[in-house]
Design a binder for these strands. Structure first.
Length: 552
RNA sequence: UGCCCGAUAGUGUAAUGGAAGCACAUGUGACUUUGACUCAUAGGGUCCUGGUUCGAACCCAGGUCGGGCAACCA
């Protein structure tokens, strides 16, 4: 899992190649333009990967630009979180951190320039009135009265809008394009509106703010962005993007659209994510079940796996839905390669090794990774009483079963071979403990006489075990596409078993690790020490189970 | 019944007029001190109808199906 993603190509890179070889462009400048009104999720990761990754591939640069043109919706609290998430993914914007609000003065001047060209006018229509004038897709619109206003009067009105002489909603500045255009976005779109709102960067300097369509292309142009990538829903806005830059006669940035990421069992709309948080369906934005980058980080997913996914799904204009299994496979591949092994028992039953001395303790040196000797070993204590998984005992087990059954010899991973002699159950038949005997000649887990055991199970010494809160996470929804049923709300498909909290028995080393450290608990799954994990209060989150084992 | 975009195995994506590949998923087998990993192996695809061409997934025409667009949001 390295930098191979930079080698990928796609239709936008084909265009860049052509632009570079034709001389249309001599460098590649991209930008990632989040609005600071929420947390970044894996859909944004695709955009970040494309924006930063493309700049990287062409030795260009990628700007981080906060698109803060709507003070009512935005909040500075998101700014740091967004930067942290981008850095976590491994990208660096260097000194190229910008704000749309940096350009408010220029945007105002540009608006005045349009008015002077007769390409913009002040419109006194209310929202509803304009809606009526705009018409519907199949019928042309009607010209608003302000369209014929003189340039001088427009200039005066616009300045008075800026000076705060009018209330919110009374006037807008509109581009004067074509009320009959088949593209609704070209029917005299609003480019400035009055909003007497405090802005986190510009304070109370402005009471008019530019609309996205006007602001975004100008931001791109000012920064010299050559290839401005966004998702498909902006495709119909592109004629307006081009129109504004052409009328302004400024640097012509170009917009390219790709389809956004969709994954089965995942919902990515900001509004719905907010609902989950507000209604307490999850513990917060960084709940490990959330598809937010902070949630996925807490869950134990790696930035490398997220980027690899973005690389593998590619970049096209086709809006499909990628199976989550692809991502899970990439995650397991990464975690299998890079996480250390440990032993933990999540559903414990007691094993007593009857012929093992009461006070004896063995320290076994067990490899941290079966295929990577260089990752070293660790000491794991063994004693007379152990915890093993409830699943690792079965009455009258078939041959294929890997675990104890009466009379069968099993390998205790890295320790000894042991045979189960007796099972003790309660009145309901629930297994309470196993009575076993071990072979002292099999230290380390192999028999001097060469006899084979088909089963190896994990264990934790009861005397040394550390109790930990372990959070077993599963898919947040029960269906592939929770938004697919028009009759039902997506929350109707919430998986009631998406979180199960248990107390597990850990090998002692695990209590001492730093929050965020990832492990494979052998034969159980991949786990990550939670951000609140400590040696006094160990907490682990399950990232994923191991690949589903074959059925018996 | 307006405009824009799209369609390649179950899913995602290559092939840019010259043998339809890859990954995930699925089936089978081998190996294993993790039922993991690894290895081997199998099945499965160009939306439809015409046209151009020696040759079409690719170019053209018409259709079908899917998505997007009517905030003073981004």
């Amino acid at each position: 899992m390295n930098n191979e993603e930079v080698k990928t190509t796609n239709f936008i890179h084909d265009i860049i190649d052509a632009d570079l070889s034709s001389g249309k462009r001599t460098e590649v400048v991209t930008r990632f333009p989040p609005e600071p009104n929420g947390y970044l999720h894996i859909g944004h990761a695709k955009a970040i990967y494309l924006d930063f990754g493309t700049a990287e591939k062409y030795n260009g640069r990628c700007h981080l630009r906060f698109d803060d043109t709507n003070p009512e919706a935005e909040d500075i609290e998101y700014v740091n979180a967004i930067q942290e998430d981008i850095k976590w993914l491994g990208y660096d914007w260097g000194e190229h951190l910008y704000w749309a609000s940096d350009y408010f003065d220029t945007m105002y001047d540009y608006a005045v320039r349009l008015i002077k060209k007769g390409k913009a006018y002040v419109c006194e229509l209310t929202k509803e009135e304009f809606k009526d004038h705009r018409g519907i897709p199949t019928e042309p619109g009607k010209e608003p009265p302000g369209r014929t206003r003189s340039m001088e009067e427009n200039l005066d009105l616009f300045e008075r809008m800026k000076n705060g002489e009018f209330e919110d909603g009374t006037y807008t500045l509109r581009a004067r394009i074509d009320m009959t255009s088949p593209n609704l976005h070209m029917r005299d779109p609003a480019i400035y509106r009055i909003k007497k709102a405090h802005h986190h960067n510009t304070g109370d300097k402005w009471c008019i703010y530019p609309m996205y369509d006007f602001a975004h292309c100008i931001e791109d142009s000012i920064e010299g962005v050559t290839h401005s990538m966004c998702t498909m829903e902006f495709e119909v806005h592109r004629p307006l993007y081009d129109w504004i830059l052409e009328e302004l006669e400024v640097f012509q940035s170009h917009q390219y659209e790709f389809s956004k990421l969709n994954l089965t069992y995942i919902v990515l709309s900001k509004r719905r994510l907010l609902q989950l948080v507000n209604e307490g369906r999850v513990s917060g934005w960084d709940d490990p079940r959330m598809p937010t980058l902070c949630g996925m980080r807490r869950r134990g997913f790696t930035p490398e796996a997220i980027k690899k996914l973005c690389s593998v799904v590619g970049c096209t204009k086709f809006e499909g839905i990628t199976e989550i299994e692809l991502f899970e496979s990439i995650v397991r591949d990464d975690l299998n390669e890079n996480s250390l092994r440990a032993m933990a028992v999540v559903d414990p039953i007691k094993v007593i090794i009857e012929n093992y001395p009461e006070d004896q303790v063995d320290e076994f040196e067990i490899p941290n990774h079966p295929q990577k000797e260089e990752l070293g070993t660790r000491q794991v204590p063994f004693s007379r009483e152990l915890w093993i998984e409830r699943d690792d005992y079965m009455d009258d087990a078939p041959n294929k079963f890997k675990g104890f059954t009466i009379g069968r010899e099993v390998r205790l991973r890295g320790a000894y071979l042991a045979t189960c002699n007796e099972v003790i159950k309660d009145a309901d038949g629930k297994v309470l403990e196993l009575r076993c005997s071990y072979d002292p000649e099999t230290k380390g887990g192999s028999a001097p006489d060469g006899r084979k055991v088909r089963s190896t199970i994990h264990w934790v010494s009861a005397k040394h075990a550390v109790d930990a809160e372990v959070r077993l996470y599963d898919r947040l929804y029960t269906v592939e596409n929770p938004l697919g049923d028009k009759e039902k709300d997506f929350k109707d498909f919430l998986n009631p078993e998406s979180l199960e909290v248990i107390t597990a028995k850990l090998e002692p080393m695990l209590a001492t690790v730093e929050p965020g450290t990832r492990f494979q608990f052998e034969r159980v799954g991949y786990f990550c020490a939670d951000k609140d994990h400590s040696s006094e209060q160990p907490i682990f989150n399950r990232t994923l189970t191991l690949r589903a084992p074959r059925k018996l």
